[in-house]
């Protein structure tokens, strides 16, 4: 296995042939062992930044490097994997689950792409890890939304990449699969991988991303979620397009155990506490936050 890898994006400016500058002077740095969310509205340059990190678009200025390697070199060494958005994939394509996972091994094969025993072993192991081994002979269109996502995750695993880019990984995925994917990403983080997740699902960000990059035509802010994911920063990022529901004068009483249940359709809501700090649905992993708040005077 190769060394943990960091991402360095420096002063990246991307302009399209029609002269449209989609992104300017974007700079951020991420260390290995991180799950980072890329957050911004449609048209904010989020997908452009994503494409620049993938090497699909060439910046007119600035650079993207991974652990000191050029992007091209890092890709040649199979260090970067990409999990596409569901809408980008042609699900009628005549390939099986197994074929797709095997594509993750192409970089290790000779130019005829004939798999060796090792490639088959890794592909099998990767499929098993996402719980899809019994679907290996299915055509990819015959899978549910969550299963489809898991197949492409298995491909990224089979590739043995250190940096994994996920484009809207939770769109069209049921809650159970979402949790399974988050769990897998956490495991990968512990193993020193770096995950960059493009998402518009705000609520899920503090739940599993330890870092965020906020984008609106440029990188507005980046860093640990607790520090960066503030109401003020989000207002700058979204420029007033977010819906607000405040509970200022609400009926929540102390006898409710200070707990409320919020139901939404498919997206997780983002909840801020009274002082503008993030609220988490689970206390585990956030002991530090709980401790800090315990020292504050209790609200009456």
């Amino acid at each position: 296995m190769s060394e943990p890898l960091s991402i360095d994006v420096r002063d990246v400016t991307v302009a399209y042939p029609n002269g449209n500058v989609a992104l300017h002077d974007a700079t951020f740095h991420l260390a290995a062992g991180t799950i980072c969310a890329l957050v911004g509205v449609n048209g904010s340059g989020k997908s452009t930044l994503f494409k620049a990190v993938m090497g699909f678009v060439k910046p007119v200025r600035g650079s993207v490097s991974l652990g000191g390697l050029s992007l091209r070199e890092a890709q040649r060494r199979n260090l970067v994997a990409y999990v596409p958005q569901a809408e980008e994939v042609d699900w009628t394509f005549p390939v099986s689950v197994w074929d797709v996972v095997m594509m993750g091994r192409y970089g290790y094969m000779n130019f005829l792409r004939i798999p060796r025993a090792e490639d088959r072993r890794v592909a099998e192991e990767s499929l098993a890890r996402v719980g899809m081994i019994e679907f290996r002979d299915r055509q990819i269109g015959e899978l549910s939304g969550g299963q489809k996502k898991r197949v492409f995750l298995a491909r990224a695993l089979a590739q043995r990449a250190r940096v994994i880019l996920l484009d809207e990984p939770f769109t069209g995925v049921d809650v159970k699969t979402e949790e399974a994917i988050v769990e897998l990403l956490r495991e990968l983080r512990s193993a020193g991988h770096l995950m960059l997740v493009s998402t518009h699902n705000l609520g899920s960000v503090p739940e599993f991303c330890d870092h965020v990059v906020l984008i609106n035509r440029t990188v507005l802010a980046y860093g640990p979620t607790d520090e960066i994911f503030t109401e003020e920063n989000l207002a700058r990022t979204f420029g007033g397009v977010l819906r607000h529901f405040r509970f200022d004068e609400s009926t929540i009483q102390k006898h409710d155990g200070r707990a409320v249940t919020v139901l939404t359709d498919d997206e997780r809501p983002l909840v801020f506490g009274k002082g503008g700090h993030l609220e988490y649905s689970r206390r585990q992993e956030h002991e530090k936050v709980v401790e800090e708040r315990a020292e504050e005077p209790d609200d009456k």
């Binding site: 993938m54 090497g55 990409y82 594509m103 970089g107 130019f111 590739q159």
Partner: peptide, 21 residues
């Protein structure tokens, strides 16, 4: 000879790029 690379290019050019093709 290149049938797998060409197929990958048709199926998922993003992945093809990310493995250095």
């Amino acid at each position: 000879a290149l049938r797998r690379d060409l197929l990958l290019f048709c199926f998922d050019p993003g992945h093809a790029r990310s493995i250095g093709l």
